[in-house]
């Protein structure tokens, strides 16, 4: 192994810490924007920021392949489709939300939050965490292919099922749009 770190690592550790915190802040801030935004398009952009933050965390953990895929698929394809849909579906006005009493909102929020925190928290604290085995390398096409078709084959196949459902869903929605005379996706496209 050819390690060529310079002798004093503290500066790099500091930079790494700052990067890590910056990505976490980005993820959380994006999530907050996604929840709190009054305009749908701002919410989607918040989601994009959050997803880029998650990609940054993947890169920080040393898996550049997953990080790239995160940006390529979620930011490049999924989010853009969402922005596209929002743009076509509504004029850029503020969405009037169904008004719910504030007390109800807070109560529901607290219940859901506590439930999630309890489930996730119990799982996190019940597990005895050990340092993850260092992934040596996984960025060549051969390794990625072997990984996808052996260890992760179930997830890989399930994703295709999800995509199939998405395709069927979009066909159904598009057909309904044509039937009632309303255009869903702009027919002149």
């Amino acid at each position: 192994m050819d390690i060529t770190f310079s002798s004093d690592l503290s500066a790099y550790v500091a930079i790494a810490d700052v990067t890590f915190i910056a990505f976490i802040a980005m993820t959380l801030a994006g999530g907050l924007v996604a929840i709190l935004a009054k305009q749908l398009i701002h919410a989607v952009l918040g989601l994009i920021i959050s997803l880029i933050g998650v990609a940054g965390l993947y890169a920080f953990l040393g898996n550049y392949f997953i990080a790239s895929m995160q940006i390529l698929i979620y930011v490049g394809a999924v989010s853009i489709s969402m922005v596209f849909a929002v743009m076509l579906a509504r004029p850029p006005e503020e969405v009037k939300q169904k008004s719910m009493r504030l007390a109800t909102k807070i109560a529901l929020g607290v219940i859901v939050g506590l439930f999630t925190a309890a489930t996730v928290g119990s799982a996190v604290f019940a597990h005895r965490w050990s340092a993850a085995a260092k992934v040596t390398s996984g960025d060549t096409p051969v390794e990625i292919g072997i990984g996808l078709l052996t260890r992760n084959v179930l997830a890989f196949e399930l994703i295709s099922l999800v995509l199939l459902i998405a395709i069927i869903g979009s066909v159904v929605i598009a057909k309904r749009g044509r039937g009632t005379g309303k255009t869903v996706g702009g027919e002149e496209l």
Binding site: I41, Y64, M69, I71, V75, G76, I80, V83, D139
Partner: peptide
């Protein structure tokens, strides 16, 4: 020299569409 060089470039190129999209949308 990244091991995923070409993928990295493609993922960054994906952001270009986003830029055009929000430019067009935000101009009203």
């Amino acid at each position: 020299n990244l091991d995923i060089g070409i993928l990295f470039i493609l993922s960054l190129a994906a952001l270009n569409v986003l830029a055009i999209l929000i430019a067009g949308w935000s101009s009203a």
